[in-house]
Design a protein around this nucleic acid. Sequence first.
DNA 1: CGGCATCCATTTTGATACTG
DNA 2: CAGTATCAAAATGGATGCCG
Lengths: 230, 230
Amino acid sequence: MARRTYNQFCATAKTLDLIGERWTLLVVRELLSGPKRFGDLHRSLPGLGTALLSSRLRYLEAEGLVRSTTLPAPARTPAYELTEAGEELRPVVMAMARWGMRWALDGPAEGEAFEPGWAVLGMQAIFDPEGAEGIDAVFEFRIGDEVLHARIGGGEIDSRYGPADRPDAVIVATAEAFAEVASGRLRLADAIAAGRVEVSGDRSALSEMKRAFRWPERADRRTGQARATS
Amino acid sequence: MARRTYNQFCATAKTLDLIGERWTLLVVRELLSGPKRFGDLHRSLPGLGTALLSSRLRYLEAEGLVRSTTLPAPARTPAYELTEAGEELRPVVMAMARWGMRWALDGPAEGEAFEPGWAVLGMQAIFDPEGAEGIDAVFEFRIGDEVLHARIGGGEIDSRYGPADRPDAVIVATAEAFAEVASGRLRLADAIAAGRVEVSGDRSALSEMKRAFRWPERADRRTGQARATS
DNA sequence: CGGCATCCATTTTGATACTG
DNA sequence: CAGTATCAAAATGGATGCCG
């Protein structure tokens, strides 16, 4: 019955005691973009069975990282959301995302799952407040059949699910094309030139958007050498 | 034979594919304070068997996060060290350390392992470049039977094993007392008043040191309420 | 559908013993 | 010191069934 723990007086080890088990941090990642229902979580995490998801959620709830809530009208269905402690794991996930974009992300490979929400977090991870200085614009993304948007202003980014109110530019792409751009594997300009990404609205807002992000330079773990972007 | 992977096109998931297994990130944490021999790693990680440690090291080596090296004279023994990719996991570990200090670190509890090197990383985690502006000083710490030092200057901190060249102040404490202070559970002033920490040398350098760190406010995960420090 | 519990095959791990 | 070999215990993944 005793939970497995590293039994070390070390903040990092204690953190891993809480979120180090398989799937746990990915559940947190899902909830970082807002409350989600059990089924949504299950769908976003292929390979994670309902039994284990249930167990993870109960554990996170008992530990105060997640709480149950009820979705606002008209949904009114039960859902899970992060507590303050859970929300503050965002810097941990962002640090991992930046590292992964630089050292680990290839593909997308055949058969890999992809959720546009992951790219939303990726955008937050590489947002650069300095580069975004003076920018105030709203972008809508239509990725496959999902719609999300990002509002850049005041040196901050706020990216969420759903359509934008009055977007300055609209970006339309397949999930795969968007994934390649968001991961830094394909340059936005090349994707547009190839017709894999379509942009409507204010073209100058688009060039501003590029300023607001700083993609980590991709490199090979074994050699440390930079890898081509496009 | 196929390695277990989340199979997601997501930078965070890819990172977890590499460092998400049990013990892996703690091995990285150990190597963040410099090259270490197999036996040193084994001793610092009670509960991790030699078989699993060996397997983790071979995996990390194959993946380009760790490489074998030879310790400089007079040791000349084989050891392991981080590659550039491994070293760049530092922000991930630091983010976890900050979260853990705020939300997870109690104790130290009976029977918990503690290595002074962990506190060295903790100091890096809570170092505040703004607060450290204008400070230029060297501190030596004698924790139990280990000696380490920190050099603060130019808005940066450089903390390492071994004695300092000409320290401005020397701090002597038991491992337990030092751990309590470094974790933010006990205030330095109180520890000195209680005679659990002794300071010699420049007292003004010491008060400068306090400015250079920003302890996260400790809070309870379930309630979000702040917890007393001392 | 949302939210589990149960059963079982496969992987991972922890502990102990042993070798160059 | 620096690991391998072996085996038992625990965690995981997948399928199935139940219940409001």
